[in-house]
């Protein structure tokens, strides 16, 4: 899906890539609405892409436009390639994590988490999954997918997480965006889950593509909500996401390696100042 957008950006570059990026953002928001998710992830990807284009441009300002175009094209190809192989990298990074007989609690439907679990079961590891019911019977869908891969799955009510927590070995969640302090923005209920996990001393692992790293610094829940809704006030009755502070996260498994939450900011600074 990134590919098509990148195609547009090349054209935009020849004239001026600023309007193209704006168009991109608009497009992504439309797409976000379609997905029923927020546009946060797309925002993060676009910021990274914008930065990439700008970097190439400043490096080769004196060169001809054809040359710059070529470089950007190559860069984009690598970026696209990266996002395609990302899931494999992540599940490979998390290889040592899975062990026979463990019980994993998951929340929401994250394709990266699912991929990791399925890869693990394909390697012959036997484990159980507990999935939260979540909005719109999402849990049932997840259960269906996992049981297709012969992973024993149980769906629980969201309000039962504290009850099952003692029997769980670790928690896996995906996320919509990773913010600068190493915290994550994810489906509503993630923060609650993290709090309960902390109380029971269970490791809380986040699985995410590195493209979701975002140069934002929410200090409280409201900031995160505003971030996701483009600055509009959000009605407390229709909240879809929440913000989990870094101190509740054990490790982040990303496509560029395993990170502690505190290492995220270094990564971001390096990229955006480079």
């Amino acid at each position: 899906m990134i590919e098509t957008w990148e195609g547009k950006t090349f054209q935009g570059l020849l004239n001026d890539f600023e309007p193209a990026c704006k168009r991109l953002l608009q497009l992504s928001q439309e797409r976000g609405i379609l997905d029923g998710k927020t546009a946060l992830t797309m925002k993060a990807v676009i910021a990274i892409y914008q930065r990439l284009v700008k970097n190439v441009y400043t490096l080769h300002e004196d060169k001809e436009i054809e040359f710059i175009k070529e470089i950007i094209q190559e860069k984009s190809m690598i970026l696209t390639q990266h996002s395609i192989t990302a899931k494999n990298r992540i599940s490979q990074n998390a290889k040592a994590l899975m062990r026979d007989g463990m019980t994993v609690l998951i929340h929401g439907h994250s394709s990266v988490v699912m991929h990791t679990l399925i890869k693990a079961v394909q390697r012959g590891i036997k484990f159980d999954v507990v999935v939260t019911q979540s909005l719109n019977h999402l849990g049932q869908n997840v259960k269906k997918i996992l049981e297709n891969h012969k992973i024993p799955t149980k769906v629980i009510q969201d309000s039962a997480i504290a009850l099952v927590m003692p029997k769980v070995d670790c928690i896996f969640v995906g996320c919509e965006a990773v913010v600068e302090n190493g915290g994550i923005i994810n489906k509503i209920g993630t923060f609650t889950l993290a709090l309960v996990a902390q109380t029971f001393q269970k490791p809380f692992y986040v699985f995410t593509e590195s493209l979701k790293f975002m140069k934002e610094f929410p200090l409280k829940q409201d900031d995160a909500l505003r971030l996701a809704s483009n600055g509009n006030e959000v009605d407390i009755e229709n909240i879809l996401i929440d913000y989990t502070p870094p101190e509740y996260i054990t490790l982040l498994f990303t496509s560029i390696g395993i990170f502690t939450p505190s290492a995220v900011s270094d990564e971001l600074i390096e990229f955006f100042s480079g």
Partner: peptide
């Protein structure tokens, strides 16, 4: 390295190679 590091490291790897 390029594939892995490209995201964090927008240094002129490609151009160097080229």
């Amino acid at each position: 390295d390029d594939e892995v590091e490209d995201l964090n490291n927008p240094s002129p790897n490609i151009s160097t190679i080229k």
